[in-house]
């Protein structure tokens, strides 16, 4: 079954991130797209062109919200204004579920605007799960947390990243936005087998999957979302689908953005893996 309670039982298919360079094409050509993912923060404003554009999109397409600054792992409490604006946007978009990252990024009211990794400690598990719960209760829709790409590991860590993710989502009773590109990036940066990660994730909690490209440097990989998806990431995706069954899938492309058709074609490659997953095979693969 493609849907579960963490994605409001939706079978969204394959979508792409809604990006400004594609607006003109979308409005002029009205391409058939299963769904768009929006970055919530780009629309958490009072009025103006971004919201008017979003309303036009909402008239024709399904939209799911994805945030970049909820910072579930930050020790300081979320900004009430942030939560108020986010809920306002949730009501506007009627997003069936909402995602943000398993990371931190602000402390004492100062924001880094980055997705900083968490130490995988029991203290972090408890604090993060509590915050996810509070946000989910406030927003009154299912929340999925996304694993981030990371470039640093902490001496304080007491478990693997996949164990940490599992502990947080079980305690928060929330969904997972499984980013298989982020798993690959972190695996290369931290020297673990990415397939171990995909095999360990609680498959029944996966609400959505992200795919993307990245940039390889001499000593590390950076999650830049500016390239096509590489084969090893497709392999992780294939395994994730094998374990989870078809899940709403989204291609992220944020820099050096090619034409709409090119981005969409890259995303649609996911259909090679999404179709033909018999339920009994999925059950066996878990």
């Amino acid at each position: 079954m493609p849907g579960n309670r963490f994605n409001a039982y939706q079978n969204h298919g394959v979508g792409i991130g809604l990006r400004i360079p594609h607006y003109e094409h979308i409005f002029a050509r009205k391409p058939v797209v299963d769904w768009f993912e929006i970055i919530s923060e780009n629309y958490m404003i009072d009025a103006g062109r971004p919201l008017a554009t979003l309303d036009r999109i909402l008239e024709q397409y399904r939209v799911v919200q994805h945030g970049v600054s909820m910072y579930f792992g930050s020790v300081t409490a979320p900004d009430p204004e942030h939560l108020r604006r986010l809920k306002q946007l949730v009501r506007r978009t009627k997003t069936p579920w909402l995602s943000d990252h398993l990371c931190w990024g602000s402390v004492d009211g100062t924001y880094t605007h980055d997705l900083l990794p968490l130490p995988y400690t029991w203290e972090a598990v408890e604090r993060t799960a509590e915050r996810v719960r509070r946000v989910q209760d406030f927003l009154e829709i299912p929340v999925a947390v996304e694993n981030v790409s990371s470039y640093a590991a902490f001496t304080a860590s007491e478990m693997t990243e996949w164990d940490f993710l599992t502990e947080v989502v079980e305690r928060a009773d929330c969904g997972i936005l499984l980013d298989v590109n982020n798993i690959y990036v972190s695996a290369m940066n931290h020297e673990f087998n990415p397939m171990d990660y995909v095999n360990a994730v609680p498959a029944h909690r996966v609400a959505q999957i992200h795919i993307a490209g990245h940039s390889k440097y001499e000593k590390y990989i950076l999650d830049t979302h500016d390239h096509p998806v590489i084969d090893p990431v497709w392999d992780l995706y294939a395994r994730a689908i094998e374990r989870c069954g078809p899940r709403p899938t989204l291609l992220e492309w944020d820099d050096h953005i090619p034409s709409f058709d090119e981005v969409h074609a890259e995303a649609l490659k996911a259909n090679r893996y999404l179709h033909g997953q018999a339920p009994e095979l999925v059950e066996a693969a878990r």
Partner: peptide, 11 residues
Amino acid sequence: EKRLTSEAGVE
């Protein structure tokens, strides 16, 4: 240029 927030790393 219009502002465009994303989660991607910056080059």
